[in-house]
Amino acid sequence: MVAQEGAPGGGSEAIALEATSGLRDVEAARARAAVQARIFPAWFGPVAALIVVGVGAVQSWSVDRKGFPVLLALVVTLVGLVAVRVVRWIATRRTGVVRRVPLSARLWRSRYGLLITAVACAVTWGAAVLLGAGGSASRLAVYVVAGLCVWGTFVWRNAAARQELARLRDEPGAV
């Protein structure tokens, strides 16, 4: 900076650098907010997995049954969906940064997790059928794998977000 001030046009260069540095700080702060909002509490993954497995257990129990079990499976599925939304809302508040992201953007961000979950579920289903497991056992196995994938996805996402946050903090432009 001092050298630049001594050079022709150095004062203007210094002003330009300062203004650019201010703009870079703003971008860094915005990026940190966006990344911080992606971090979920550690308990969210296991709780979401338990809900998925719980719904799966009731669904697999209702296979080949009629009447009340079918109705119960339907009710439990709906309760499970509501529970996931409520738990997600609580988890979002606990992160300290609330950022409403459209569903399309959330799905796009979770594309790899969703793809891996779908492939894992398909492989599990195929393996269960090949091993001669019944419809009920196969369905339960698929839900257990889906629950584990949900947990794993959140662990991976949290780790990636924390890594990015650390990188943003270490950047020279960080506030």
């Binding site: 700080d25 703003v26 702060a29 990026a31 940190r32 907010a33 966006a34 609330v98 950022r99």
Partner: peptide, 9 residues
């Protein structure tokens, strides 16, 4: 700037 990237913090 931080708050501009989220709804509430």
């Amino acid at each position: 700037a931080f708050l501009s990237a989220c709804d509430e913090a």
